[in-house]
């Protein structure tokens, strides 16, 4: 039977303190690298902005508008396309974006191919009210 040294626990605790200290130092080095990477990124681009595509559209809706129809030519079951819907919803809150029903008076057309937006507007008798430089169209029904 192996006889453990009397101060076995103390040795073990000290070993783990050394190991955890080493990990902490390694984490510090990695964190420093993250900060350095961000410094480089900031030279190329500004901070994250999720509002740019939809900002200002809410100012063109009448006060008290509860629902805004949302039409997209992309597949809203895919995460990237749902992300855009979520961004639009965040910016335009408290107006509710309804992607299941575009019979509302105001409808937002967010399409990869703008031709699809215009086709849909024609189908649903929606007139374009506002178009921003990102191709987002706010349409209104008579």
């Amino acid at each position: 039977m192996i006889k453990l040294p009397l101060n076995y626990n103390k040795i073990l605790k000290t070993l783990f303190i050394c190991a955890l200290s080493l990990f902490t130092i390694l984490n510090l080095i990695k964190l420093k690298k993250v900060v350095s990477d961000i410094v480089k990124i900031k030279q190329l681009t500004n901070y994250q902005d999720i509002e740019y595509r939809f900002k200002g559209l809410e100012n063109n809706l009448p006060k008290g508008t509860t629902y805004l129809g949302y039409f997209s030519d992309s597949d809203l079951t895919k995460s990237d396309d749902v992300k855009l819907l979520s961004q639009a919803q965040f910016v335009l809150a408290p107006v509710i974006l309804d992607y299941t029903n575009i019979d509302h008076k105001y409808v937002l057309f967010v399409c990869n191919n703008e031709t699809n937006a215009w086709k849909k507007m024609k189908e649903t008798n929606t007139s374009p009210f506002l178009r921003n430089r990102y191709g987002v169209i706010l349409g209104v029904k008579p």
């Binding site: 900060v35 961000i38 990124i41 901070y47 994250q48 999720i50 992300k83 979520s86 919803q89 965040f90």
Partner: peptide, 19 residues
């Protein structure tokens, strides 16, 4: 400094909590 690069947070932040 790390957070200001991502000031709107992650997806769930603006899709759920902040919304």
């Amino acid at each position: 400094y790390i957070s200001i690069q991502n000031r709107y947070g992650g997806w769930d932040a603006w899709a759920i909590w902040n919304l």
